[in-house]
Nucleic acid binder design. Sequence first.
DNA 1: TGCTTATTTGTAATCGATTACATTTTATGT
DNA 2: ACATAAAATGTAATCGATTACAAATAAGCA
Lengths: 328, 328
Amino acid sequence: MARISDVAKHAGVSVATVSRVLAGQGSVSESARERVLASVKALDYHPDLAARRLRSGKTDTLGLIVSDIRNPYFTDVSRAIEDVAYARGMRVLLCNADEDPAKERFYLDMMRDENVAGVILSPTLQLLSRFRPEDFSFPLVLVDRSNPDTHADAVVLDNPDAAQRLARHLLDRGCRRIAFFYGAASATGSQRLAGYRSALADAGLEPVPVPIRPTTEDARQALLAWLDTQSALPDAIVASSGLILLGLIEGLRERGLRWPDDVIIAGFDDMAWTRITSPALTVIAQPTADIGRSAIELLLARIAEPKQAMRRIVMRGELIVRGSSQPG
Amino acid sequence: MARISDVAKHAGVSVATVSRVLAGQGSVSESARERVLASVKALDYHPDLAARRLRSGKTDTLGLIVSDIRNPYFTDVSRAIEDVAYARGMRVLLCNADEDPAKERFYLDMMRDENVAGVILSPTLQLLSRFRPEDFSFPLVLVDRSNPDTHADAVVLDNPDAAQRLARHLLDRGCRRIAFFYGAASATGSQRLAGYRSALADAGLEPVPVPIRPTTEDARQALLAWLDTQSALPDAIVASSGLILLGLIEGLRERGLRWPDDVIIAGFDDMAWTRITSPALTVIAQPTADIGRSAIELLLARIAEPKQAMRRIVMRGELIVRGSSQPG
DNA sequence: TGCTTATTTGTAATCGATTACATTTTATGT
DNA sequence: ACATAAAATGTAATCGATTACAAATAAGCA
């Protein structure tokens, strides 16, 4: 393994000059630069990152802690983040906290230990509710989950607005009794609940909120249990996330219920499979690529300019109307 | 930020003793150990990883390069790998090569630069076909994709066997003309093609292979184009992967074709959405959690014992028969 | 040309840990 | 109690880069 001193010797210059050429800083004569680059190639030299980091105290690594790697929403967001990082030659440490505060803690500690330049995080509710900026020694951008009063850069969907528009769409379709299955232990769940509530209040209707754990399997079981307690079917059922929507669909199929005839159904997240049910599902699509791109750009801006004011980027969801909300 | 010398001073010992306590190596008296640990806690000391790596030349980081992070197969495998690593306090650098040999090259170089302890990789066909063990300076385990003659540790599905069993199942159901949509530029695609071919050959039937690019959108378009060239529908259509299966389903819906009545359909990968089509889809389920777990255990064993013989772990796929292959 | 200023280059300190080696302290056996 | 082995501890070299500072060289100008 060639070291910087080998390159220096080979090029007939000092290690300082080699370092300057590689960093693109300081002034180096054209002839020296060429000789160094030739030697680097000839010796197949690759700088030791550990040594570089130790001395400079800097890394070109970003951290990304997602709350559930199996959720297509997060894989799409990660893809966008990774694409930007890749284009800039930066590394991304991708970690999966699995909605577990202990794992989240572990990975946040790891980010500190790795001395990353910054972190993008979709926090657990526990972390978000006790969020204090001074707990983090690195620049941080929240994604997907953040409250208006959270003192941190963030990129989120306009959850209340999206849920409200989805609910209004169903009201326009004549639905009166609309049940809302939402993740109670989730920031997005409650924000979407608020939007749903306000739409129903505007129409003078009673909301029917059903808080659940926001997983597919819990949604399925919760729906079955809930249906058993009801004397009649509601007009519509809404899911506060894609994972929940999938569980509800499973439950409906299990009960032999069809949509939109027996009950109208709609939800969040335009996942690939929402197009292949019969009929296809009405959903709020999130601009996942834009969310990821904005998050990393926000982070890089914060790293470059630590003092700048906090920014909160709110994205608008897109209502995609499909067969599941169009009776007749 | 506390350094090791601060801890040493605080505990009244030398830095060497602190290092020994933290590494759990060498001999340290019980009283010294206790004082050191107390000082570590009191000062909230966290060793500088860059310094440690520079001096020791070791990292507790593993690399994981998947070919497509959006593919649920890989997210499931990563989950299992990450779980094991987490339990052992190791880090995982997760990268998404996106089926792009250039990105794959980039990330492999990055792994070398990061000096990771080992790498788990699902290689592109390009890399696999020119695979040479001596090109890698770190222990490597291939996952999902590997040929019997590839000289590397690997964990794969028994692709020929699984495809053969799936094809036989359809033959048993009375299908004679069975089309096979497979990823031509993929190692698994061709291995599964071989199994399908052999099942049809055993039955004295002509195979109907349709090579495509292994993405959902390509599968959809390929199906539509292919149907246009056919005078009659085949008895069954088989997809060589979950992503392809999804595309085929989209295509069938677009044409207004229903399964199993118009055509029987089946494929690989037991993704969540395969249970919610009407009827649900017959698939070969892969033991993704076992695959991931085996891969990291194989890697850790190789790291611990670099000289041991190459191992190739072949997993059996499970045929899950659902409505899509049961006419009547 | 001679003097000042700008550019280029090199030497050596430095980052914070690990670890070889030397040394001191404690334990063991007779 | 004394010699010897074992355990515990400390000192200082080391990993491979970056970078402050000093020194050398080149350029600019009267």
